[in-house]
Amino acid sequence: MSQLHDDKLKFLEEKANDIRRSIIRSLQAAGSGHTGGPLGMADVFTALYFHILKHDPANPDWEQRDRLVLSNGHICPVQYAAMAHAGYFPVEELQTLRKYGSRLQGHPHRNMLPGIEVSSGPLGTGLPQAVGMAIGLKMNKQPNQIYCLMGDGEQDCGIIWEAVMLAGKLKLDNLTGLIDRNNIQIDGMTEDIMPLEPLREKYESFGWHVIDANGHDFQDINNAFEMARAIYEKPVLIIAHTIPGKGVPEIEFDYRWHGVPPGAGPEDKFAKADQVAEMLSRLRTLDGKIRSEHQ
């Protein structure tokens, strides 16, 4: 696996911090939406949009692009933030999230925002579409990659396993799935709501190659995607172990922050009125969590 240079790591870590800041601000402006997932996936999205994906923000429909399919559409604030910082649209537009007339719908809609591959939100529907794209590209003998990002709670959906079964049958090696394994869903911890483990063995038994990765370590994330490209004759699943709410220590691991925005969250750490300011200030003093800012 190729070693990312310190400059690259620093660049990615700073981008991730910008993206987290944008997530907090846009969610505050929206007054509703999910916080835990977007913050937890900020590093993976940064790696994708700033290092891994073959894409062109100035030409979102570029035929040779890789396709990023977001299956768990509710974490779209992180995708919007990553896209804005990558140059798809102005960063200021993030403040229109979820508002009337905005291209940034509460759950993403492809006909409104160029660069969104599929409209999503109803869980489980992204992976089948990614599988369809992978089949279509293989029929056309096009080399592009399909990446499908999923939630772990989403693995409860039966349709996911229909798609997993088909991808295994067809040996879709141009498809890489990634599960945000943050262990929370709306009603609580995934293993209490509906146990998913052993997740790796489940996918393996359906004919997938599975890679575990630290979803907050850019070197590890990059290694996983490089390995995924190298695996032949099998679809690949990356289980990205992430911390929901990552970046703001006081809300990390707390499932109560799954579906609420800063300013409307649980008050045991910060009063609602102080939540945005506290979160933004804490993001800047991560104390080792985002290395380059700490150095």
Partner: peptide
């Protein structure tokens, strides 16, 4: 797997 069939068809149409 009719649910998957609808989604896969959508993905194929995207290509």
């Amino acid at each position: 797997a009719e649910q998957n069939m609808a989604g896969v068809a959508s993905g194929l149409a995207a290509i």
